[in-house]
């Protein structure tokens, strides 16, 4: 074996991934070649150091204790498909069944396809009105209503955990990639929280009715639709949430590190609104000014 041939195999030799005959040839060459011995020692030191570096670096980090809770929430969301998601899931299941049945004859495949078409057609014919109602419900519940330029049309379902009609923005600077809403903010009953987020930006809005403390924080005094508000800028921190709806095909982060965050606090009647975001002041004020109580669905 020549030096070049040996050098090409040295990494695999050190990793114990050469054949027995290659091993014998490499050993024989190394016994009489100082240059290749040095090369082997150098590669071995490098491998050892890289391995040690990666192991030490990985051992210094661990997932946060909340990650299982977040995953459970997302799994629970997936486990309850809405009526309008069910046909899609059924079609996907049929597709997987076809993939698994590679050995089915052509006639069997045709029979399955015919049955599937008949079932889907009959189901659609029978349930068109209720299907439409369910689609409407899903749209309303998750704010997936039509987005026309940057404005939203939102129709909200009654919220059992909140006694007041929450306000919703009718303006957002760009289309969000994911949203989340919950009726109890940070375990606080009677509070309503909504989050809109996209690539690099988030808006977190928490509303409470008739809070015990009606005072506003100190900061830059602003006016929101004629009502006094306070804007604090230059905030730093980490914002985490569990997205409940993601626009198809997008990757929505659930963690945002912000170094120039803003918090806007103001009242609309007896509802205290606190908005945290990493977008520009003017956009935050525009969102705040666009917030209005939305008509609840009479269902």
């Amino acid at each position: 074996m020549k030096c070049q041939e040996v050098n090409e195999l040295l990494v695999a030799y050190l990793d114990n991934e050469v054949t027995p005959s290659e091993r014998t040839l490499i050993r024989a060459h190394l016994a009489g070649c100082d240059a290749c011995q040095q090369e082997l020692a150098s590669l071995s030191a490098l491998q050892g150091r890289v391995s040690q570096f990666l192991k030490v670096r990985a051992a210094q980090v661990a997932p946060s204790p909340q990650v299982w809770r977040h995953l459970q929430a997302r799994l629970a969301g997936e486990a309850r498909p809405s009526w309008f998601q069910r046909p899609a899931l059924a079609v996907r299941r049929v597709g997987r069944a076809f993939q698994r049945r590679e050995r089915m004859s052509l006639n069997q495949r045709f029979l399955w396809a015919l049955v599937a078409v008949l079932v889907i057609t009959a189901g659609t014919m029978a349930f068109v009105p209720s299907l439409r109602a369910q689609v409407g419900e899903a749209i309303a519940q998750w704010f997936r209503s039509e987005v026309r330029s940057s404005r939203f049309e939102i129709r909200r379902m009654p919220s059992p955990g909140v006694d007041f009609t929450p306000l919703h923005p009718t303006y957002l600077p760009t289309r969000p990639m994911c949203t989340m809403e919950e009726d109890e903010s940070k375990g606080k009953a009677g509070a309503f929280r909504q989050v809109y987020a996209g690539k690099g930006w988030f808006v977190d809005i928490i509303q409470t009715q008739s809070p015990a403390d009606r005072s506003l924080p100190t900061g830059w005094e602003v006016s929101v639709n004629g009502q006094p508000g306070v804007l604090n800028t230059g905030l730093q921190g980490k914002f985490e949430f569990t997205p409940r709806f993601e626009v198809k095909g997008s990757v929505c982060s659930s963690v945002y590190i912000y170094t120039d965050g803003r918090q806007l606090t103001w009242y609309v009647g007896d509802i205290k609104v606190v908005m945290l975001s990493n977008i520009a002041d003017e956009e935050m004020l525009k969102i705040a000014q666009s917030m209005m109580p939305l008509k609840e669905d009479p269902q």
Binding site: L54, R57, A58, A59, V61, A62, P63, S64, V67, H70, L71, R74, K238, S253, S254, V255, I257
Partner: peptide
């Protein structure tokens, strides 16, 4: 999963997202 993701992505926050 988390540590493999951390080494590939070189970010603890992204690794946590990836884990989920």
């Amino acid at each position: 999963v988390y540590r493999t993701a951390y080494l590939i992505l070189d970010s603890a926050d992204e690794a946590e997202d990836a884990l989920q």
